[in-house]
Amino acid sequence: MAKFETVEDYLSSLESPKQETLRAVLDSIKANFPDAEFKLAWNVPQVQIGGKYVFGVNAFKNHLALAPWSEAVMADFATRLAGYETTKGLIRIPVDWDVDSELIADMITARKAELGL
């Protein structure tokens, strides 16, 4: 696996439609949270607000993953996530997902509240 230097390097390494979908996810976050910082951690894009991790994304062979960095947030959103395959910490989405900006923003807002931000 390649070692990426920037979020852009990571995104550029992805084939279509993974690249476009993750770019749309990150663009949605930036639009809703202008104070968000996008960084690489564990060689994948992560979102920080106030120096704390609030969301992460990753690409796999057959799906993409979204992670709010909180089992509690995942549990709180269980009803809204019923149509997705989930684990305690992440949501698996199709590579060509029609980005649900409201869901992402609500999850980040919940994570920020959990962190006292």
Rank of each mutant, 00 (worst) to 15 (best):
K52T: 05
N43S: 04
I91S: 10
V7S: 04
G50P: 01
L14D: 06
L26E: 07
T6Q: 05
D100C: 07
A110N: 03
F33I: 04
A67G: 13
L14N: 07
S101A: 15
E114R: 12
L26A: 11
L117G: 09
A2P: 14
L117P: 06
I104R: 01
Q19L: 05
Y10W: 03
S16L: 05
L26R: 07
K52S: 10
I91L: 10
S28F: 05
Y84L: 10
A67F: 03
A36G: 06
F33D: 13
L90A: 12
P34L: 06
D106N: 15
Q46P: 02
L26I: 09
G51R: 03
R23M: 00
A105Q: 09
E8R: 05
P94E: 14
K61S: 13
A72I: 07
A113G: 04
V47K: 08
S28T: 15
D100R: 11
E5R: 14
R92I: 00
Y53M: 13
E37P: 02
K61P: 05
W69V: 07
K112I: 06
Y84K: 11
Y53H: 14
Y10T: 13
A105F: 00
E5P: 03
V7A: 09
K112W: 02
V25Q: 12
V54F: 00
E102T: 15
D27R: 11
T87D: 05
G83L: 07
R80F: 03
D76K: 15
L22F: 00
N62G: 10
T86W: 05
D27S: 13
I108D: 02
V99N: 05
P45Y: 07
D35V: 08
D76C: 06
A113N: 13
A2I: 08
L22T: 02
K3M: 11
S28D: 13
S101T: 14
V47Q: 04
F4M: 02
N43E: 01
A59V: 04
G83W: 02
A72N: 13
Y10F: 05
K112D: 04
V54H: 01
E5M: 10
A36T: 11
E8C: 04
F60L: 12
K61N: 12
K30C: 00
I93Y: 04
R23W: 00
E114G: 12
N32T: 09
L22A: 07
P34D: 09
D27K: 13
M74G: 03
L117C: 09
P45R: 08
L64F: 00
Q46F: 12
N43R: 04
A113K: 15
L117E: 10
W42E: 12
S70Q: 04
A78S: 15
L40N: 08
K52D: 07
K52H: 04
D9Y: 02
V47D: 06
E102S: 14
D9N: 11
M1I: 15
G116E: 07
E85S: 15
M1F: 08
H63F: 06
N32I: 00
K52R: 12
F60Q: 14
A67N: 15
S13H: 06
R111T: 11
A2W: 01
R23T: 02
A75D: 11
V44W: 00
P34I: 07
A41R: 12
V95Q: 14
K18Q: 15
Y84G: 10
